[in-house]
């Protein structure tokens, strides 16, 4: 029972991060039907920027909390610019191209970004500075840290903010209208280029936040970290129903919990044959099962007319 509750908590933390990243995939997909495979790399760049900025400031004697805030702000700004630039340079020229073309471009951009990161930050694992004190809590036999509480709390608030933006503001209404009927939205005066840019910029900002959380949580980062994280967040988006905001959030949390429970019990279930380091397989089992039996995902309304 202890391990169950413990893994639920761990899964919730990891799942919050997946959810934030999944939102980036789902917003872009919802509006323009594109799977931006470079999104994981945007998250990775966010983590590395935060390391550089926060690390440098801490070395210069700036208080840790202030350095952390600056690192986060820098990561968010750099990623917003990167998301905007990606759309502008890589995807916009292909707006009317066959669907496979931007997909291949997205994979290409993800390779480019990985290589840029490798040149800038090197091939080695980087350690993320300690931004939060190590405080432990205990609840019903399960342990958790201040960092975990912060990750879940900040993710929750951020997602609430996003829901407000999408459902209660003019920009959000324009985004939803464009997702439903881009031609008529432009007849209403919506500049679809701006809406698409906004989706990339907002998704990238969420990704940067997620990247900083991953760094704070695992205290380690690497230029290839975006690949697996991106793939899992994409799985979460598909699980929830890609294009659907609530789906991305629920899919992320659910995937995090499935993975954590899987990792917690896989040893017992296989008589010790597989260890918890096999936890990555669960995401892909989920992806395959969803694609086979419910490709529209948990919250998806329709299948097959996009991507």
């Amino acid at each position: 029972m202890d391990i169950f509750l413990q893994q639920i908590i761990n899964g919730l933390v990891q799942g919050s991060i997946y959810a934030l990243v999944a939102l980036g995939y789902t917003m872009v997909y919802g509006i323009m039907g594109l799977i931006n495979f470079a999104h994981g790399e945007v998250v990775m760049i966010g983590t590395l920027v935060a390391i550089s900025v926060a690390g440098t400031l801490i070395k210069a004697g700036v208080p840790v909390a202030l350095a952390g805030v600056n690192g986060l702000a820098a990561a968010v700004l750099v990623c917003m610019a990167l998301g905007w630039g990606l759309e502008r340079i890589a995807y916009r020229p292909l707006r009317n191209a066959p669907r496979l073309t931007p997909l291949i471009t997205a994979i290409g951009m993800s390779i480019v970004l990985q290589n840029v990161a490798m040149i800038v930050w090197g091939r080695n694992y980087l350690t993320f500075p300690h931004l939060l004190p190590k405080v432990n809590f205990e609840f019903a036999g399960a342990h958790f840290t201040a960092i975990q509480v912060m990750i879940v709390g900040v993710s929750g608030l951020t997602m609430a903010g996003l829901v407000f933006l999408v459902y209660r503001t003019r920009l959000g209404m324009a985004m939803r209208a464009t997702a439903q009927n881009p031609q008529v939205a432009s007849l209403m005066g919506v500049n679809s280029n701006r809406v698409i840019s906004a989706a990339f910029v907002i998704g990238s900002a969420l990704g940067a936040l997620a990247g900083v959380m991953v760094g704070t949580y695992y205290e380690i980062a690497h230029y290839q970290m975006g690949f697996m994280l991106g793939l899992k967040a994409f799985t979460a988006a598909v699980l929830g129903g890609i294009g659907n905001l609530a789906g991305a959030m629920a899919g992320g949390i659910l995937l995090g919990i499935i993975e954590a429970l899987g990792a917690g019990y896989i040893g017992d279930l296989t008589g010790g044959f597989f260890g918890s380091h096999y936890q990555d397989i669960f995401a892909f089992i989920v992806l395959i099962v969803v694609l086979m039996f419910k490709p529209s995902g948990l919250f998806g309304e329709k299948t097959g007319d996009r991507a």
Binding site: R170, M173, A174, R176, A177, Q180, N181, Q183, V184, A185, L187, M188, G189, V190
Partner: peptide, 21 residues
């Protein structure tokens, strides 16, 4: 437009608000 082109998953009020965008 031909075929109306209402935004199906926006409410009536939101569709009208889009008209005044």
């Amino acid at each position: 437009p031909e075929g109306r082109g209402v935004f199906p998953r926006l409410t009536v009020a939101e569709n009208l608000a889009m008209g005044a965008f």
